[in-house]
Amino acid sequence: MASEDATGGVNIDTMHQFMVRPLFGEGAVHWYTPTNVTLWMGIAVLCTVLLLVMGTRGRAIVPSRIQSVAELAYGFVYKMVEDVSGRDGLKYFPYIMSLFIFIVFANFLGLIPGAFTTTSHLAVTGTMALAVFIGVTVLGFVKHGASFLSLFWITAAPLALRPILAVIEVISYFVRPVSHSIRLMGNMMAGHAVMKVFAGFAGVLGVGAVFPVVAIGAIYALEFLVAFIQAYVFAILTCVYLRDALHPHH
């Protein structure tokens, strides 16, 4: 979306793609209004069903291609939860799998030109990060009671350093949801915005547009990688937080 300003400069509106709009007509966005968020999240759910339910309908011992992908996703997240959170973390595997699958599909769907990237919004990533943070903290206190606080009391350190470390640990603990959410949202938003900037250049450069177009191709490939890696990072951090809740004693 490039439009020439009154001043003659190039005004590339990189943020327009992130607008939340009602699907039908114009007007205010109420909490219940079906918006483009609804649409793309719905498509993500549809993709989930297609891959993990329709794809595995055969229950074949020798899997079809789609079933292979579904099994790969299952095995990937299952192993991650087992390795990072430990065997007792496997009880929470469906939650982490749900988060991972949603983020993966939201990220990849956002790469379709003209699509709306739901995970590029702080409201979405922040809600998920807060849910993880609150869930993990509550779980820690339920499982270990007050001894969950030993997570912040690092017995490996010299006694004199421990209070200072405890303060740092507490701060870092409460910063977790912030970094957890902004990492994903920032990656998604930045990638899409950069592509939009290059697209804007291509619009005004005429024949020279070859360079921005090549750059868009390169960035698109990078974004493809980022889309997966960020979902992976979100899921593995969730596993790490879960491990801290299950085994708070260092």
């Binding site: 939340v20 966005v29 109420h30 909490w31 219940y32 209004t33 918006t35 968020v37 609804t38 999240m41 719905g42 993500a44 759910v45 749900s98 988060l99 949603f102 739901t118 919004h121 409201a123 979405v124 809600t127 998920m128």
Partner: peptide, 11 residues
Amino acid sequence: PNQIFWLVVTL
């Protein structure tokens, strides 16, 4: 509120 509502529904 809209995004959070639909996110919760989706999840």
